[in-house]
């Protein structure tokens, strides 16, 4: 290809990229840079006091802030519970349903995908009603079955609140992985499966030696996406508990929002955002590396 033709093609390519690039730069890259820059300032909402450059002051303060530490621990609990559960559960469901006839398969896909497409506010309202301290269905059923004597304040008791949030998160997180796994399992090379079976491989060996390896890219994608979603758990907290009781459900995402929009400490909130991004990046990189080794 001549240099002139190559240049013309390059220009065409960049022109096609341009609209997306403008939005990507405007709404992702520049805010990211602003976030990093602002995190080095004692920035607030007050027009009468200029922002002061404080270097790593916000970052130092973060590690002395017990609420941030609590939020970080809660976030890791959410990630630690939800990521393995979502992967294992969705793989199990997908491996059960992917061989079903088309109508039944679609039915299950719809059932599991419904909470994903339903608005988070609507989902939260229903769960809030079910968890209600005074007339919620969980208390009604448990009391009716004689399991509890008095109502449990599910969202108002530090012992239960975080687990209640995790349960809702799980129901809204498994839909997409199930659909992806169904698709990935359907695309496994059947000739390899049949050859292994002819050679006397057990079901477990077929799964572990052939299917698992072939669906590894899907697993990696699900791991990364679920990890990021779990790290960014926010709407449920805001709508249900505001991080309480006693910070039992405080997550880093919610604490960022609270610090920036309630206390107007923009610099401090941005510093938290940077730390969160670093953690997500590190964990995602680790997942990529492990999957690559496999």
């Amino acid at each position: 290809m001549s240099p002139a033709l190559r240049r013309r093609e390059n220009i065409s390519g960049y022109l096609f990229l341009l609209p997306s690039l403008v939005f990507f730069v405007g709404f992702v890259v520049i805010p990211m840079i602003m976030c990093v820059v602002t995190s080095f300032y004692d920035a607030n909402m007050n027009l009468n006091t200029p922002d002061v450059f404080i270097g790593f002051g916000n970052y130092v303060e973060l590690w002395q802030d017990p609420v941030f530490i609590k939020a970080l621990v809660n976030t890791f609990i959410i990630v630690g519970v939800s990521v393995p559960f979502v992967c294992a559960f969705s793989l199990w469901v997908a491996s059960v349903i992917y061989k079903m006839r088309e109508g039944l398969l679609s039915f299950f896909r719809i059932v599991f995908y419904l909470p994903v497409v339903t608005g988070s506010v609507a989902v939260t309202v229903v769960w809030k009603w079910m968890y209600n301290n005074y007339y919620g269905i969980f208390n009604h059923l448990l009391k009716g079955a004689g399991i509890i004597d008095s109502n449990i304040n599910w969202l108002g008791d530090p012992k239960y609140a975080l687990w209640c949030i995790i349960i809702i998160l799980l129901t809204t997180s498994v839909g997409q992985p199930i659909v992806l796994y169904v698709s990935a399992l359907s695309n496994v090379d059947q000739s390899l499966v049949e050859a292994a079976e002819v050679d006397g491989a057990t079901n477990f060996q077929v799964f572990w030696r052939i299917k698992w390896r072939q669906i590894m890219p899907t697993t990696l994608y699900i791991l990364v996406i679920t990890t990021i979603n779990s790290f960014q758990c926010f709407a449920l907290i805001q709508l249900l508990t505001s991080g309480g009781p006693n910070y039992a459900t405080e997550t880093v995402m919610y604490y960022i929002y609270y610090t920036a929009f309630k206390l107007y400490r923009f610099g401090y909130g941005n510093a938290m955002g940077v730390i969160l991004a670093i953690f997500i990046g590190l964990l995602s990189a680790l997942q990529f590396r492990l999957a690559k080794e496999k």
Binding site: M34, L47, D51
Partner: peptide, 18 residues
């Protein structure tokens, strides 16, 4: 240029009521 622009934006808080 982008980074410079961001710094410029960040420190652009007026000291007085405009």
């Amino acid at each position: 240029l982008m980074i410079a622009g961001v710094f410029a934006c960040n420190t652009g808080k007026p000291a007085d009521n405009p």
